[in-house]
Design a protein around this nucleic acid. Structure first.
Lengths: 119, 119
DNA sequence: GAAAACCCTGGAGCGCGCTCCAGGTCAAGG
DNA sequence: CCTTGACCTGGAGCGCGCTCCAGGGTTTTC
């Protein structure tokens, strides 16, 4: 099984090393395995989780929610609940896309109005 | 011409009174007219501008950019430049909508994968 | 075997965008 | 009048999500 140094994990995940440590402190990542000297070694599993984390962060999920989600993940029996949470989040993402489009529409009307005034 | 007390301006614009004062301090609003005793009186023009500000904020324009835009507005001759800035912003909004949709797609794939695992 | 590069910890600091507070002035109703 | 509530100013404080730093160990490279 491949493992990754902190620098490699940062490279692959797209998070900075500091952010990876921060997420671990916050409980968003479960404790990362260490070498005998204390250096972290990330696994493919960790990177897979980080990929989901990236997706959730990029779609606006707050750190606190991510943390709760991660805590749920500690218990295998909560799988259905977690999927439900992801679906809730998907709905919120849809709402924010819709809101953004609505505002974009307004913005375009403003621009069109300026244009009609002979800009 | 209708004028508005701070509370009314807040009500209509959707910003809090504190935020209105903050925007004025920051130069995002030009100095609001005052009564002889120093109380602000917002005009329809002010509210029109605030409507655009709301639209720009909701679509993610940072305060600093809004401020630059507002400074440009002080000079009538910059109208074309301002419209160009709005169009730039519109493009950025489109990009963030696209990005959001891309991530939403990824999210939905993750959900589908969990579902396929028998959740 | 020494320099350079990497990693560790705990905690401070920061940028953003407000939000709140103290201490005071002003205006409208009873 | 006097109370009540809205408003004023300057400045402090806050929540979020990192980001950076000091002071120290480790691993790799030449």
């Amino acid at each position: 099984m491949t493992t990754y140094s902190p620098a490699q994990a940062a490279e692959v995940s797209g998070f900075s090393i500091d952010t990876l440590r921060y997420y671990e402190r916050e409980g968003i990542l479960r404790p990362i395995a260490r070498t005998s000297s204390g250096h972290r070694t990330y696994t493919d599993d960790d990177l897979g989780w980080l990929d989901l984390v990236h997706c959730l962060r990029d779609t606006g999920m707050p750190i606190a929610d991510l943390k709760r989600y991660a805590e749920l993940s500690l218990d295998e029996a909560t799988l259905a609940a977690r999927v439900a949470l992801l679906e809730d989040h998907d709905r919120r993402v849809q709402e924010s896309i819709d809101a953004l489009r609505g505002q974009q529409e307004k913005l375009r009307e403003k621009i069109a109005w300026y244009r009609s005034q002979g800009v």
